[in-house]
Design a protein around this nucleic acid. Structure first.
Length: 255
DNA sequence: ATGGCGGCTCGCAGCCGA
């Protein structure tokens, strides 16, 4: 089973690239972030034609998440239970007995910003939600745009990024709090090329110069980690015409 | 590397992302 995550930065613009990715990589599950679409405009027809069912939770202009799956999506849940957040950032579904949670964790803007405070409030709520989900589902994967680069090797210039949003110590601590719940970073279960990133700024020739960050992750429970056969960043999607600023991340689980 | 890109909107400039 191949599970993937991709921040597409507008599904309306990126639909052709998403269809390319589905055809080329044939993931069983693809989690999307920043669809920027109201549910009424979700491209159900094109995705059905490509062989995928979808569950989605969107809004106009900002945010928006979705899960595409070749097989049935059960127990679909939108948002975090008990948290009335108008920003559409979470959707979950059970697929082939695996709990798949797709998240678009807030960016935070800067460490001085009110949005940084929101990020931590949000992460606290996600943490307690995860605790409950983990009690129910020994097979769970948390995929998405975390907006956190957890380690020095996930940042092209750790000295420059030190203390900045996406790489500040409290954010790394929040990431480690999720790991402490029993989740493992599937990417780091395997040998990986140096300077592996999942996001590159559109500006300053960020991709060509490989000035990136690894902020998109697939965290899995121990039971899935045991069955995990690989995790890769599908870098070539970032090199295409009119790319998202993120590349997809994909893990293979033998089930 | 932070102006510099690219997506969005009752657009024609400003907000947001990361």
């Amino acid at each position: 089973m191949k599970i993937a995550t991709w921040n597409v930065n507008s599904l309306k613009v990126r639909l052709p690239q998403v269809l390319d990715f589905l055809a080329a990589q044939k993931p069983d599950v693809l989690c999307l972030q920043e669809t920027k679409l109201e549910d009424a405009n979700f491209p159900v027809g094109d995705l059905t034609a490509a062989g995928y069912q979808a569950a989605f939770s969107g809004q106009k202009t900002y945010n928006g998440v979705a899960i595409l799956s070749r097989s049935a999506l059960a127990e679909v849940a939108r948002g975090i239970d008990g948290y009335d957040d108008p920003q559409r950032r979470v959707i979950a579904a059970t697929i082939s007995g695996i709990r798949v949670i797709c998240v678009y964790i807030p960016n935070g803007e800067s460490v001085e910003s009110a949005k940084y405070v929101y990020k931590f409030d949000w992460l606290r709520r996600l943490h307690s939600c995860l605790k409950e989900e983990l009690a129910r589902f020994p097979r769970l994967a948390l995929l998405g745009d975390y907006n956190i680069a957890p380690q020095d090797r996930d940042v092209h210039d750790p000295k420059f990024w030190a203390g900045k949003v996406l790489f500040s110590e409290p954010e790394k601590a929040a990431f480690n709090d999720m790991v402490a719940l029993g989740l493992q970073d599937s990417f780091r279960l395997f040998e990986q090329p140096e300077k592996s990133f999942s996001w590159w700024d559109y500006r300053m020739n960020g991709f060509k110069r490989n000035l990136g960050l690894r902020i998109d992750h697939i965290l899995v429970t121990a039971e899935l980690a045991k069955a995990c056969k690989g995790c890769t960043i599908v870098r070539d999607m970032r090199a295409k015409e009119r790319p998202s600023d993120h590349a997809p991340v994909m893990a293979e689980i033998e089930i």
